[in-house]
């Protein structure tokens, strides 16, 4: 894209995009480490994920400040306007993604207190991986202003939703058969729900990217996992 006549404007846009790239990278790492901590029952790693979330929150505040400054001082138009509005909305969503990862990490010690093997835990890493990749791709799509990649992220949300329904059933069955694990399984259910929400939020980011890249908004779709009532 051609440069602005006013160079400082380009510098501010670059800084904005740089901050969002960093924030996205940190959110991805938080998801990955939270899942790893859960799998390995690694309390130290879990505590790191919780601590690192502060930086994600700080970036959100920094981006908000910068966006307000750009709107006030540069009066951005057209694709510039769409970029800064998308940036403002994306950071609040990525901040939520960070919170979900933090919430997963906070549950690790509660699940790790029990040495018994919880079979359903095995389902969660792949689910976490799909959601993490959605976050990764949504932010890559923002960096590249790639509407097609954003659409591909949105389509993948059903994979996470299906995962959630499957984990839900498995955990319910497991709890019926092993009533002593109900406390841990309840935490795992929240972990699964958190991952499912991360997928939804990655989709929200992708929708904003699509808007910023094309100027068109996508039609409203059904959000959240569709929980089938058990017979």
């Amino acid at each position: 894209m051609a440069e602005h006549t006013i160079k400082a404007f380009d510098e501010e846009i670059d800084r904005l995009r740089g901050l969002i790239a960093e924030m996205g990278g940190r959110a991805e790492a938080a998801i990955e480490n939270a899942m790893l901590a859960l799998q390995r029952q690694d309390k130290k790693l879990a505590a790191e994920v919780v601590a690192d979330d502060k930086r994600i929150d700080a970036i959100e505040a920094e981006v908000e400040k910068l966006v307000i400054q750009v709107i006030a001082l540069r009066a951005p138009m057209a694709n510039d306007l769409r970029d800064v509005i998308a940036a403002l909305k994306i950071v609040s969503v990525v901040e939520r993604i960070g919170d979900y990862a933090k919430n997963i990490a906070k549950r690790v010690p509660l699940i790790a207190t029990n040495k018994r093997t919880l079979e359903p835990i095995a389902l969660l890493p792949s689910m976490g991986q799909v959601a993490g990749e959605m976050v990764h791709d949504a932010l890559n799509a923002f960096a590249a202003r790639d509407a097609d990649l954003a659409l591909a992220v949105i389509e993948r949300d059903t994979v996470v939703d299906d995962f959630y329904n499957s984990v839900f059933r498995t955990l319910v069955t497991f709890m019926v058969e092993n009533p002593k694990t109900i406390s841990e399984c309840a935490h795992l259910l929240f972990v699964a729900k958190n991952i499912e929400r991360i997928g939804d939020h990655a989709t929200n980011v992708a929708e904003m990217v699509y808007y910023a890249a094309t100027g068109q908004t996508l039609p409203e779709r059904e959000r959240g996992a569709d929980i089938q009532p058990e017979d």
């Binding site: 894209m1 051609a2 440069e3 602005h4 006549t5 006013i6 404007f9 951005p76 138009m77 057209a78 694709n79 510039d80």
Partner: peptide, 11 residues
């Protein structure tokens, strides 16, 4: 051309 002009990228 419209985009370049209104976003300050003209010329």
């Amino acid at each position: 051309r419209t985009k370049d002009y209104i976003t300050g990228r003209y010329g």
